[in-house]
Amino acid sequence: MKVVPSRSSEWVNPVTSQQPASAIIEIDRVSQVFQTSARKDHVALSDISLTIEEGAFVSILGPSGCGKSTLLYIVGGFVNPTSGAVRMKGQAITGPGPDRGPVFQEFALFPWKTVLGNVMYGPRQQRVRAAEAEAQSRALIEMVGLKGYENFYPKELSGGMKQRVALARTLAYHPEVLLMDEPFGALDAHTRTRLQNDLLNIWERDRKTVLFVTHSVDEAVFLSDKVVMMSKSPGRIREVIDIDLPRPRRRNELLLDPRYQKYVVDIERMFDEVDETGSAS
């Protein structure tokens, strides 16, 4: 099944229309095999190739167990692939680095640091002067909507606030690519929606490249330029769908837009197909 994006609007996607769009990340025939027991191997990822263009917001969508987070960890350099390679701007990725900033579902904040301490951590590690790092961090904290919480510890914050801190902490060391691993997966529906809106607003300021893992179809369509649909067992790329919807996107407009609705319906159908081998849902 093929999703045909409707190109009826006068708006042109700056990412897909740039000729030629420059690739920032190239995933080249990556496979990942985990040994689950002495004799059985679990193929988490099988022969994944994908090119991510600079400035694009790309979502990796798929049912749980399709290896989408593993793929993100490989791009982050946190996990080494069994075979294949990932290149960033032509350079092979061999480990984590400040050019790729992760944001995890589990927030992974440093609980012994205040909000300000967490956000300043990256810049201080990169030897930015304390006063400068603090000024930048305070601005970022304000940008993610947490002004007034600078001296709070993570345990004093709600889940949504923690994820805002985590985003600010990662943005603070200016990664070229944001790697977001189901960042809103642990949040309630309302908080999730608000963070999606705020993420888009922040993203539209500087259009960093984002690789965004999710299992929510409308989240993927709402945020992305491109949705990479994966199937599971083994994890493969089923389809890459360009989302041709105008930006800046406003949720209230988009939800009424038939093109948005069609993307969601079509991709949901595809999701059901790839997931039917697993649960009955």
């Binding site: 960890y73 982050g76 350099g77 946190f78 480990g95 984590p96 680095g97 400040p98 790729r100 900033g101 992760p102 995890f104 589990e106 992974a108 904040l109 440093f110 951590y121 990256g122 590690q125 990169q126 902490r169 990662t170 060391y173 990664p175």
Partner: peptide
Amino acid sequence: KMLWSGAAM
């Protein structure tokens, strides 16, 4: 993930 966050920094 906390260690990964540190490694990325």
